[in-house]
Design a protein around this nucleic acid. Structure first.
Lengths: 247, 247
DNA sequence: GGCGGTACACTGGTCTGACCAGTAACCTTC
DNA sequence: GAAGGTTACTGGTCAGACCAGTGTACCGCC
């Protein structure tokens, strides 16, 4: 017979639990409001500092948002990958994750997303991808930020067509972390224009493959595209991490 | 010319930023201690409640841990995927992620990990996998928890051999979320023994494939193993999400 | 009656000061 | 030197206060 170590339960933790439970169970829907801190403090029977620490934790988890002066109280937020993204960013910084690892991971995720998307895509998805591609073409002339937005949209449609929200979120998260790592290198206009041109042709090919329901090809294309466009920023000794994914 | 929306910067946020920066830059290493709350409050020039809210945020991010009474102060923790796991768990609950999506994601991750591991594995990795497999054999007779531990170790060695910490962490996280979802269904001893037997033979095959550096085969095997063992818990209408990954 | 502006009640953010239970190191005692 | 008690400090919690800011209801003006 073995015993478990006991950990004292803090008051603010129990407050967090109750509010969390209310949100997860659906009793509190996004957009609805929590009672004010002073009201919560009487309902929970704790001091205001305890309530506030609980709200801070929930706010760090991106579950609520409070604004001073708003008489309606703290707002319950819709679930978002923002907290996940922050956790991953912190981990990437703390573990000193290199571009190679991130790129490897993104090639994996995007490859699978494309594979699945090619086999599960509907006609609506194809139409959306068409409009996203033309948006990229016009965006390329308007400037890098516009192009980038259209590019993100294209990727997101594919990830969504894969039927897996986790793929959508993870690619988005990793994409953000990667861009944060190399954004200074992308600052030069020369790199940008060649990058945009390259991505445009690649995306057209990918769309073709997805239309043909050729998942293997689509996955190949996107992995090669990522490699071709970003490998130059990866230390040469790390290339061996990437190449196995290309066959 | 466009303007950015301004958001007031809270005092506790600036405290968080400074401590975070000290940890990320390496000035504060894991195991080291922060000054006490009362000391921090004079150093930052803020009240104790502000310091405490900042520490709460950092604690929610799994960066520090504080224990009442410890005169050495709050402890700086090593980077861990715990926060990531919590974020993903919350997201899974809030988005009502089903077993199908989670399993699809895990098949993707583990497949890639096996593919990479087969091509990048060293002799040491193979030796470790050998011992892990025998540990599973003996663990299977000792009981489910022991077996489960050895099983996790096996997966972790493979993930580590893939050279990608993100794969290690993500599989671990998703694995945890999946198990939480079906743990009640695994409670029956009958299910457990057949599960253990099934995993043992599968793992032996996988080890073979990895030894032969046949990444494609290893990936196939693990995806099929996951499908065979868990698909029964997936609603039939969601099977179409999984099957495209099996070819 | 419609419309602007103002007053007010209330919000969250922060600070101060206090008390408690618990820890770990020190210091006594044998 | 070991055992046990003392003590100075820790984090957890509460109470009460002040401030800048917000949304609304009200009121006077046109």
């Amino acid at each position: 017979m073995r015993f478990e170590p006991v950990a004292p339960v803090r008051a603010y933790e129990r407050v967090v639990e109750q509010i969390e439970e209310a949100v997860f169970s659906g009793r509190l829907k996004p957009g609805e409001r929590l009672p004010s801190e002073r009201e919560l403090m009487t309902q929970f029977g704790v001091g205001r500092s305890t309530v506030r620490e609980a709200l801070r934790v929930l706010q760090a988890a991106e579950m609520i948002r409070s604004r001073p002066g708003d008489p309606r109280g703290p707002e319950v937020l819709a679930a978002s990958p923002a907290a996940l993204q922050r956790s991953m960013q912190r981990l990437a910084r703390a573990e000193h994750l290199g571009l190679a690892e991130l790129l490897q991971f993104r090639m994996t995720l995007d490859g699978s997303a494309h594979l699945l998307a090619a086999q599960l895509r509907t006609e609506d998805d194809l139409a959306e991808l068409d409009t996203a591609l033309t948006a990229m073409r016009t965006g390329a002339e308007a400037g890098f930020p516009e192009f980038s937005r259209a590019d993100v949209a294209f990727h997101e449609i594919i990830a969504r067509a894969s039927g897996n929200p986790l793929l959508v979120i993870s690619s988005e998260v990793v994409r953000g972390v990667v861009l944060e790592l190399i954004e200074d290198k992308l600052a030069h206009a020369r790199n940008r224009t060649s990058l945009m041109r390259s991505w445009l042709t690649h995306h057209a090919d990918v769309l073709e493959a997805i239309r043909d329901a050729d998942g293997g090809l689509a996955a190949q294309l996107v992995k090669h595209a990522l490699y071709d466009n970003y490998a130059e920023y990866v230390p040469t000794e790390d290339h061996r991490l990437l190449t196995p994914l290309l066959d």
